[in-house]
Design a binder for these strands. Sequence first.
DNA 1: TGCCTTTCTGTAAGCGCTTACACAGCTGCG
DNA 2: CGCAGCTGTGTAAGCGCTTACAGAAAGGCA
Lengths: 332, 332
Amino acid sequence: MDVTIYEVARLAGVSIATVSRTLRGTGPVAPKTREKVLKAVEELRFTPSRLGVSLAEGRHAANGIVFPNLAGPYYTEVLLGYEEVASELGRSVVILSTKGRSRVHDLVKDLAGRVDGLMVFGHTVPDDLVAELVRMRMPLVFVSREPLAGADTLRSENTASARALAEHLLGHGYQRFAFLGAPIATGDDVDERWQGVRSVLGTAIEAVPTEHYTVECGYQAAKTLLRAPVRPEAIVCSDDEVALGALLAAEELGLAVPDELAVTGWDDIMAARHARPALTTIRQPTRELGARAARALDELITGARDTPKHLVLPTELVLRASCGHHPQEEPK
Amino acid sequence: MDVTIYEVARLAGVSIATVSRTLRGTGPVAPKTREKVLKAVEELRFTPSRLGVSLAEGRHAANGIVFPNLAGPYYTEVLLGYEEVASELGRSVVILSTKGRSRVHDLVKDLAGRVDGLMVFGHTVPDDLVAELVRMRMPLVFVSREPLAGADTLRSENTASARALAEHLLGHGYQRFAFLGAPIATGDDVDERWQGVRSVLGTAIEAVPTEHYTVECGYQAAKTLLRAPVRPEAIVCSDDEVALGALLAAEELGLAVPDELAVTGWDDIMAARHARPALTTIRQPTRELGARAARALDELITGARDTPKHLVLPTELVLRASCGHHPQEEPK
DNA sequence: TGCCTTTCTGTAAGCGCTTACACAGCTGCG
DNA sequence: CGCAGCTGTGTAAGCGCTTACAGAAAGGCA
């Protein structure tokens, strides 16, 4: 990244404008001139400076993404879908993880200065900053968050599948339930799941918070819960990782799953399939979430669309062994 | 990102140089002037354009990272460690996934134009491009690749732990082995693992290739392998995902693990712990790999160091149920 | 042959910052 | 009182590109 357009121009015996035109294909260039320029470019191994181009064009050709962490497969998958499409559209992806960070505000702001648009998970960015970004017309797509004005939102369906799950569990004959991993923020995915489940089970289900949505926290909370004098027959978990923790706790306490205790997860991460018993869960179209976010962002950035869009993608109930026995049962 | 330093200067009644100096803290500024400037900045909600700053400073304040994909937890963890430290050092992270991409050459080149330094996994970048990047003195750190001139390399230990694993398996009394997920590139991690294992087991172990290092491919290859007239007593897998596939295949074929078949993985991903039987594997310091890469890159970028460094991080054998029964055995 | 187009190329003005350099106004000392 | 030495500020030259505009060369037509 040392040789500039000037040196190419000098070597080719033309002006920098001609070099630029040749390389970008804008404006007419005589075949002979083009040849000279290309030869000089080749010889000097010239690559236009991204900085120069961006400054002149007034665009970064890059997208940002803000996520809490990448620990689980969920965020990873979304990120992959996002990066793939962004790359297809000629944009790089700049990442920012907020987990365990102070100064999130500054970090996000810095990120915003490097990109043409931003995808944000849930509530990882403080509300006042969101407002500021909206005000300065930064193209924004939120994933897994309730709709808000001035930005796209993209979610996977939670309430209906939560109901379906709850009804399936009722079908198994369970009567006492717990929801492990109670919602932390109103309007986020977990909150919707909780609302959906409760709308079916009513007072038969009790919300049990966990500190984080991790295996470890799920394990701790489940151990406490399962040691209580009256324990639930089925534990609906906020996500697969918490559910895996619950499985560990059950195993440790000598409770057979699903015979003595049913457990369900959410997301269908890889470990869900490999756990024993395999985890009943709800599959999200993670990859597509990311891909759609990238496309939506592109529309906003290019100005192909200027009214926010709010989309909800369908999910799928995946029945495995952890919620009870299914002789010939037809998955809904 | 609309208001420029000129407008701030005008509003504050000073020159742009003074604004710049105030904001950066370079050079002296009279208290009263500073006040005026800060007030104007506040009022206009001014944030310096990253592009302008970078162009003038001649640096991006960003690092790149090239990985094959993010499917498994391995790359994810490394990425997280990398991003965390990079962010600490004031650098953003621009990602590039090469999986399923044509034009990798162009994509990497574009990436190189956006960052001050690059971390690259294994052999994801074509050799000629690597040579070119080295030639143009782009700071480079390779992870999980054999040392090469002109760049840092960072690996986790493979050979010794492979030997330890092989010896442990011999201790269980097994005599026929297979290595599932045979090395694809010479000098990469898997190759080293294979070499290490073979150096102990010699002709008692046979290499069985898989198309990719995934659960699916491991499953397919294992099924074929286990149906053969003479099947191995222990399968050493190139990584955990392949091993999980092997577990699935064994289950499907009605083979009890570990009683009729031992299986081991590599990496210690989350699913390894939750599989049943839990997977014996070798833990890599993934997070630290990323963190160290970011620091090494920083040294190279700032010029604190100019001779390449080649580092190997230790790994740890994690004994679980899948390799056989351990009554009171002391893990090595 | 002369003039109007077209085609091609160069000049120069940004894009938004940083910073070397010059200079003005003060302070303090001999 | 004069001058060296500060401190504080502005001017202007980049950083590496894109592109509007203008002008030169060449071709077409009457």
